[in-house]
Design a protein around this nucleic acid. Structure first.
Length: 115
DNA sequence: CGGTTGACCAAGT
DNA sequence: GACTTGGCCAACC
């Protein structure tokens, strides 16, 4: 696995349920400005929400999975999602994140990563 | 190895 | 508030 992607995943796995982080924060945690590269990595990430068993009902080990839906834009917008933004929103809501007009209150839900 | 792409960001118009 | 521009970086062709 590429080092960069792996790091992204490792960081993302630290985000607890009910919280979110941003592409920018992840890049910052990597001491880089690769906002876009992070998004790119997520887009190709092998552990989509479908792999979480959400759709299939198959329970896989969460330790091997990446909650890519917990990553949003730095301006609070939900951003994109490979399998549809609607699904992303739905999943987040199910974890207790309030989403209004496709936006999230960063002050309330942003998980601060170690730098 | 250059050029394009993108689930991005910030500042400008 | 919207739309455009320039910049950033890894992956891909």
């Amino acid at each position: 696995m590429n080092s960069f992607n792996k790091k992204c995943y490792e960081i993302l796995k630290k985000v607890p349920k009910g919280k979110i982080t941003t592409y920018k924060e992840i890049a910052k945690a990597l001491k880089s400005k690769a906002y876009r590269a992070v998004g790119n990595a997520m887009n190709k990430n092998p552990y989509s929400f479908a792999a979480l068993g959400w759709a299939g009902g198959k329970n896989l080990k969460s330790s091997d999975l990446v909650p890519c839906y917990r990553v949003i834009n730095s301006n609070g917008n939900v951003g994109g999602f490979a399998s549809g933004t609607k699904n992303k929103v739905r999943i987040l809501k199910s974890e207790g994140v309030e989403i209004v007009n496709n936006k999230i209150n960063l002050k309330k839900y942003l998980f601060k990563l170690k730098n």
